Each structure stands twice: as C-alpha cells, then as structure tokens.
Amino acid sequence: MAMKAETSLQVALIGDLVGSRRHPSRAVAQEQLIAALGVANEVVPAVQPLAPTVGDEFQGVYPDVATAARAALVVRLALAGDLDTRCGIGVGSLEIVGSSDYGLTQDGPAWWAARDAIVEAKRREGGQTKRLRTWLEVHEPGDRDDTPEIDVPLVNAFLLCRDDLVTRFDARQRRLVLGLLRGRTQKDLAAEERISASAVSQSLRRAGAFSVLAADELLAGSTS
C-alpha cells in the first residue's frame, strides 16, 4: 500500500561539504562530516535530525529559521581541519512521500527553496562575499495563511555578517564557541585547552565570537 502523503509547513536545511575534493581522503572527510552532524543533532533540536544523503550532501528539518541557522553554525564549528560546509535554508510546505535508507523521503517547496538557497550561497561565494556559507529562501506561500512572517533580507544580512566572522575563526576559536553552545563554561574550556580563563575570554572577544553568540540569541527571539 502506498504511503499517504503528508504536507506541512517546515524549515528545510540542505548542506554540502566545501572543498572536499581537495581533501587528502574523501573517506576521512565523510567520517568527519558525519561526526559533525552528530554534534549538531545533540546541540540543536530538530524535527528531522541532520543526516548524510548522497555524495557530500546532508539534510534536516527544523521548527523555525533561527534553529536551522544555529544548526548550520554548529556543523561548521564541529568540523575539523580545513573542512567547511555550505547550507541552504528553505521555508515552505514539505511533503513526506515515503522512506528510504536515508530516512523519510520528502519533497515540496521547502526543499526547493533550500536548494535555491544553497545555489545562491555558492554563487555569492564567487564575489565579494566569499566567506558566506549560509543563505535563506522562502517559497511563495500562495494563499496559505500559516506562513510565518520572516524578514528574509534581514536574516540574510545576519547570515552574511555571522559567516564572515565564523570563517575567520581559527581551530581553537571554533572549539571554544562550540563549547559555549554546548553549555560549557569558560573555566571548563580553559582547562580543556590548557590556557587561562582570561586567554579564553580574550580569544573569543578578539574573534567577535561573543557578537556571533549574542546575534544567534537575538535571531532566536525575533523568529520564535
């Protein structure tokens, strides 16, 4: 018996690895991606947790734009070495049409919007905003009255600025910000890094990390 299609309004996220073809080992790169997705799934609540699909891609579903944006951030922070990711976030209806080895088989405007968003993010990387890694698109809702009010240009302005800062983080700064997002204290992080708490604070302040974290909280409050 065919599965009955279910449609709802959701926030879809599609991501891929940046520069994975230049990695010495594609297998190691894939292992590191899967580990980073696991961290994101621990830290960020999802409607459908992030999971790898085909090639270097992964996808997930979130309850709102701010949560999806945070998940994209956590994946970037959790990756090791020179690996990075690019993400498209799409808002629209989402249809569950079946299941597969990768999880639920889905289709619909949320995924189309997420695909358009990741294409746009990649296009913009080729210009003056080369550090951009995340973009948002909202599918035209037609006559639906349950579409949340989202200021798309404002969210994308936030993503442009956030990604520019995060792309400049060094490996330690990524670990520190990820630690704070996981609820660790600066004292805990200092002990793990074998540096002083003052050095942790100075590193985070110098990188603009506190602004990234504060902006993340403000976005969550504005889109909830």
Score class of each variant (00 low, 15 high):
172 R>D: 12
155 V>Y: 13
156 N>P: 00
161 C>L: 14
139 H>I: 01
165 L>H: 06
127 G>V: 11
155 V>K: 13
145 D>N: 05
174 R>K: 15
174 R>W: 00
125 E>L: 06
131 R>K: 12
127 G>A: 11
176 L>T: 04
145 D>L: 09
129 T>V: 11
164 D>P: 00
141 P>K: 01
133 R>K: 07
149 E>I: 04
127 G>W: 09
137 E>P: 00
150 I>W: 06
145 D>G: 03
152 V>K: 02
166 V>A: 07
146 D>H: 03
150 I>E: 06
167 T>D: 06
175 R>Y: 10
168 R>G: 04
134 T>W: 01
165 L>D: 10
150 I>Q: 04
128 Q>P: 00
126 G>L: 10
147 T>K: 00
127 G>I: 12
153 P>L: 08
151 D>E: 14
173 Q>V: 05
136 L>P: 05
158 F>S: 11
171 A>G: 01
154 L>Q: 12
129 T>Y: 09
136 L>G: 07
172 R>I: 05
135 W>Y: 15
138 V>G: 01
127 G>F: 10
139 H>E: 11
137 E>T: 09
139 H>M: 03
158 F>K: 08
152 V>Q: 14
136 L>W: 08
139 H>G: 02
138 V>E: 04
173 Q>I: 03
146 D>V: 02
133 R>C: 00
125 E>P: 02
146 D>W: 02
125 E>H: 06
174 R>Y: 03
141 P>I: 03
130 K>D: 12
175 R>D: 14
131 R>H: 13
130 K>S: 15
171 A>H: 12
127 G>Y: 07
135 W>T: 06
150 I>C: 04
153 P>C: 11
141 P>N: 05
133 R>I: 00
156 N>C: 02
164 D>Y: 10
164 D>V: 05
133 R>N: 01
147 T>Q: 13
132 L>Y: 03
171 A>R: 13
149 E>W: 02
170 D>I: 08
153 P>I: 07
147 T>V: 09
162 R>T: 12
167 T>H: 14
125 E>A: 11
162 R>Q: 15
152 V>I: 12
172 R>N: 08
159 L>K: 07
148 P>G: 05
172 R>Y: 04
165 L>A: 14
174 R>A: 06
126 G>F: 01
130 K>V: 09
165 L>C: 08
169 F>N: 00
158 F>Y: 15
145 D>Q: 11
148 P>A: 10
139 H>A: 15
136 L>N: 06
126 G>R: 15
141 P>D: 07
165 L>S: 10
176 L>Y: 03
126 G>E: 13
140 E>M: 00
148 P>R: 02
163 D>T: 09
167 T>R: 13
175 R>Q: 15
154 L>C: 08
146 D>L: 01
139 H>D: 14
171 A>V: 10
139 H>P: 01
134 T>V: 13
168 R>T: 04
138 V>T: 06
170 D>M: 10
161 C>M: 14
168 R>F: 00
131 R>M: 08
166 V>W: 03
